[in-house]
């Protein structure tokens, strides 16, 4: 697989390590009243779709950036990649 790094272009997936579902960016608020249940879901439950999946990859043998990669789990086709920090920053801006 080749991952389309937003800054560095096509890079071999071997340069990366995999964390999983990009929803791991959305850490629940620890002070919310339902925090315990929310954290249990956050830590253990996954959507795990067959098809398009947004997921976190870390460019370890590279620029050490975290990427949100959109990939098809059935064909392994990489459909796009963004810097995870941009994704996370856009979310905090939206929620403010």
């Amino acid at each position: 697989m080749l991952i389309t790094h937003p800054l560095l272009g096509l890079r071999d997936a071997q340069e990366f390590t995999y964390l999983g579902d990009a929803r791991l960016i959305d850490r629940p608020a620890p002070s919310a009243p339902d925090a315990e249940a929310a954290f249990c879901d956050y830590v253990f439950l996954r959507d795990n779709p067959a098809g398009v999946h947004r997921e976190l990859w870390y460019h370890e043998h590279g620029d050490r950036s975290w990427l949100v990669v959109t990939r098809d789990t059935v064909t392994h086709e990489v459909l796009g990649a963004e810097l995870a920090r941009n994704v996370a920053l856009a979310r905090t801006r939206c929620s403010k």
Binding site: L8, G9, L10, D12, Q14, E15, H61, G62, D63
Partner: peptide
């Protein structure tokens, strides 16, 4: 290294495995 040589002329640098 798995680097695209068509795009790795003088002045290029990268980290890779």
């Amino acid at each position: 290294v798995n680097v695209d040589l068509a795009d790795f002329g003088p002045g290029c640098a990268t980290r890779t495995g």
